[in-house]
Amino acid sequence: MHRQVLAWTAWLAMAPAWAASVLPDGEAQQLLKRYVGAVRQQSYAGVYLHQVGGSVESYRLAHSHEGGIWREKRESLDGVRWELIRQGNELTAYGADTHALAEAKLSTQRMFPELLPDNPAELTTVYSVRQLEHDRVAGYDCNWTVLEPRDNARYAYHFCIEDKTSLPLRISVINGRREVIEQFTFSQLSIGPVRDKNAFRPTFDQQHPIMPAGGNLEDGRADRPEIKVTPAGFRLLRDVRRTMSGRSQPVRHLVYSDGLASFSVFIEPGVAANRSRLAGYFARGALRAYSRPVGDTLVTVVGDLPDATIQSIANSVQLKP
């Protein structure tokens, strides 16, 4: 009896949080735009953690926006040392060797706290936005804003947004079972002008500029494979033929994104001999992948999406001769 009462009390205490209503699209878009603006226009310095799978990595970040100029330095504190420095729209990697530079480049796929696209308004077509309870992260009061998929095809993104500046302090990626599968969080932070003159200087001589990767999409290519089941909101960003390690023939590579989540489709002809060995599921961190032979062509879909979505995309790929 006691336990039942306890359970009801707990449920009632939680209920307001779950019952928080979905924001109207206009209001949600204003909110998301404010977060995007805050990430760029505020000045802040601190340390953040990135957790994925069973591992945790930490990074130091300084970001400054003064007199219309914004500068940023990000450096790895664990494992291989590298630095990423941004001045306006120029992004440069620094490190002791090419391995470090490659690691730095790879890290640019998620530049916390800048995870939302520049124009986040369209996210509301595929994610509903709700505001949940207050919390505290790295010494600052924040409020949870949740982007929940309107379908079950992708993960939910939870943002804890600082009360005064609208800066995201913690971002969690949550699956359908409410498990955190990936998380970024400031562990130490100070919001306000960055006084340290050295905060934005590189400590390595070896550098590598990271260039915009535009112009990789040719219009109306007749031989582009058709994907019958693309979840709503995903757009084609790249369509290239590329070489891949361990493959003799070029591989067709298409990249899609909904602004938050992304997936790649690889089309690889001439794998009849060992196709059974290559087919199936595999996973790494928050990434899921599924390979499926179609005739003597291998179709592989990789992305930060649930298994079922990855599989249904892969199953719906129709090749064109």
Partner: peptide, 15 residues
């Protein structure tokens, strides 16, 4: 190779 290629292709803040 697939995961690396995917990560490389999305690891471009401009894109």
């Amino acid at each position: 190779p697939y995961m690396q290629a995917h990560q490389e292709s999305v690891s471009n803040p401009y894109l």
